[in-house]
């Protein structure tokens, strides 16, 4: 595979992990969520969710539709104010020298928006929700760089081109509008748009949801490689247990707004403890 050579030439995930361990960062969580709740109605939304996410970790949130997993993702990513609880994020708040834990909903709205444009990324299920339809593919990728303060057109275009090939889109399509792309290409473009600023944390909501199976496999493989090579932390919502198994280190299983089980991905899927998880796992057709 030569498609993401430019990604490979950066420090490998393993090297970065070793770096992080040396500097003691590996032992400090990137995100700490405590008793987070948002209920629209009893059983609608999410309730009392707590966990810690570490650098380079992929957390999968699985459960049936309506279990509250997408709502939870919105709150975790600063797009929906919770009723109770807190989300602490380790990062560089504007004006700070070192890194520290910042309260996501204690910071000003503008700071949350800055986070989402730079250190964080959100990959929506429907790619056009995360892309600008009237801006070229290259412009869609460049926008986040400009939000980070880059202004040199040549540099931005160069990075956009590189990211297009990293996500396996023909560089010749750089000036085309995303509306002329297939669903799979749009999804890959959305991923490139998010990753160009080298975010620490990416939120994904059913990223393979609307795609054909063959397109899904390609996207999954791409995601898996990027997560590994960039040492990304990811929180991914999916109802597809195969996707969860392939990408996630850990799982949280949600049912009716509550986390009913959590643990190592293969342990939760191979030795589920909660009645609902057992039902979920046993309902998947074996092949």
């Amino acid at each position: 595979m030569t498609a993401i050579n430019s990604v490979i030439s950066r420090p490998s995930a393993a090297q970065m992990k070793v770096q992080a361990e040396i500097h003691g960062q590996a032992d400090r969580p990137l995100l700490v969520v405590d008793a987070l709740s948002k209920l629209y109605a009893p059983g609608k939304g999410f309730s009392e969710v707590s966990f810690a996410l570490y650098s380079g970790e992929v957390l999968g949130i699985v459960g049936e539709s309506g279990s509250g997993k997408s709502t939870l993702l919105q709150a975790l990513s600063g797009r929906l104010k919770p009723d109770a609880g807190s989300v602490l994020y380790r990062g560089y708040a504007q004006g700070d020298q070192g890194d520290q834990m910042n309260d996501l909903y204690g910071m000003p709205e503008s700071e949350r928006r800055r986070l989402l444009r730079t250190e964080w990324g959100v990959v929506h299920q429907h790619p056009m929700d995360g892309l600008r339809p009237r801006v070229s593919a290259g412009g869609n990728i460049g926008e986040r760089l400009m939000a980070k303060g880059l202004s040199h057109y040549g540099n931005i275009r160069e990075q956009a081109l590189r990211w297009l090939s990293d996500v396996e889109i023909d560089q010749g399509r750089v000036d085309d509008l995303p509306t002329t792309f297939s669903g799979g290409m749009q999804q890959r473009l959305q991923i490139a748009r998010n990753l160009v600023t080298h975010p620490q944390l990416i939120f994904m909501d059913e990223p393979t949801g609307g795609l054909d199976v063959s397109v899904q496999a390609r996207l999954l493989d791409l995601l898996r490689r990027l997560v590994n090579e960039l040492n990304l932390s990811v929180i991914i919502v999916t109802h597809d247990l195969a996707v969860a198994r392939l990408l996630a280190d850990r799982l949280m299983v949600m049912k009716q707004s509550r986390v009913v089980e959590s643990g190592l991905t293969d342990q939760v899927l191979d030795d589920p403890q909660h009645p609902y998880t057992q039902l979920l796992v046993s309902s998947v057709l074996q092949n």
Partner: peptide, 9 residues
Amino acid sequence: LRALYGNYL
């Protein structure tokens, strides 16, 4: 064996 690997609780 699976318990030794942390695959089973």
